[in-house]
Simulated assay, not measured.
Amino acid sequence: MGRLSGKRAIVTGAGSGIGRASARLFAHEGAQVVAVDRAEDAVDETAALIRKEGGTVSSVAADVSDETAVKAFVEHCIAEYGGLDVLYANAGISGGLVPLQEQTVGYWQEILAINLIGPFLAIKYASPHMIRQGHGSIICTASVAGLRANAGGTPYSASKAGVVSLVQTTANEFYGTGVRVNAICPGLIETGMTKPIFDGARARGSEDRIGQLNPLKRYGLPPEIAQAALFLASDDASYVNGQAIAVDGGLSSTHPFAGRR
């Protein structure tokens, strides 16, 4: 019996990185999974991996900032598997590091749409089903950048701080319903989103310095975040609610940084 045996789960951003690792782990632990990503080929590849590993999965290509699409993939999960027990709103973008004076409203809107409006929509449409059944676990990917400065660009950090607040406020809005809402705040993880950082360091021959600012002196990998998501999705976390849990090698204990000038 897996830790998610009998549970129905949606994972967004499942085409790569943390989302793919989480979808695979959830399925391995017994969940029936709906894998969602706006990159159709990538999410289909995730689904193929899960099926090869003996898991149950369906894949959906969707933009998490599109309200109609979010409503549809929630309804798809309920129709396909008979319910919804776990929602992992993981999809996100960094937007890169654009100097503040060069940032546009459109640039902010794109980042906020995916990183903050996306989780809001997922919670909006998943929660009524969970409330009716009296239980459910909602997990959102925030970031250490949403806790303190110097871990990401301005709009990215603001969006992730918004996710932390969203989790705290909705956990309380669902008072007495049995629905839990939590966030994971990853540190520096090697994913497609952080690829430019890793590529640049490797080109400079300084790969061994990636992640040196945290006490473990290393970067993280998607399966390490997936394990945190598995805990929050499972009944092992039955008394964990309204929390933003950093999985960052200890980075957020100080958020040290090097001077820019």
Rank of each mutant, 00 (worst) to 15 (best):
Q168S: 07
A258Q: 06
Q168K: 15
G55D: 06
A228T: 08
E40S: 07
T46D: 07
D248C: 01
G55N: 10
V34C: 15
A14F: 08
L166V: 11
S206C: 11
N214H: 06
R260W: 03
G136K: 03
E45K: 13
S159I: 04
T104I: 06
A27P: 14
I197V: 15
L121E: 07
D37Q: 13
A149R: 03
A72K: 09
G162M: 00
G95F: 03
R261T: 07
E45R: 14
P223N: 03
M1D: 11
A244F: 00
P222E: 01
L166T: 04
R202W: 05
G95M: 11
N241Q: 04
T46S: 05
E45P: 09
S238Y: 04
V64D: 05
A27R: 05
G187H: 03
G95L: 06
Q103M: 15
A258P: 02
V60P: 02
R209D: 02
Y175H: 09
L251E: 03
Y81C: 02
G55Q: 08
R8H: 12
A91D: 11
G153F: 06
V60H: 04
A27F: 12
E224A: 01
T141Y: 04
S165A: 14
D85F: 12
Y125C: 13
G220I: 04
T104E: 08
G187P: 08
S253E: 14
F257T: 10
A79D: 15
L213G: 08
D44K: 15
I225W: 02
A62G: 00
L116I: 04
Q32H: 11
G15V: 05
G19P: 13
V240T: 14
V167S: 02
S94W: 09
I197D: 12
G136I: 01
I10D: 09
A27Y: 12
I50N: 09
D41A: 15
F120V: 04
N172P: 04
S59F: 02
I114N: 09
W108A: 11
I245W: 04
D248T: 08
L4A: 01
E207R: 05
R24E: 15
G220L: 06
I93E: 13
I225P: 01
M1Y: 08
A35L: 13
D85A: 03
V70Q: 09
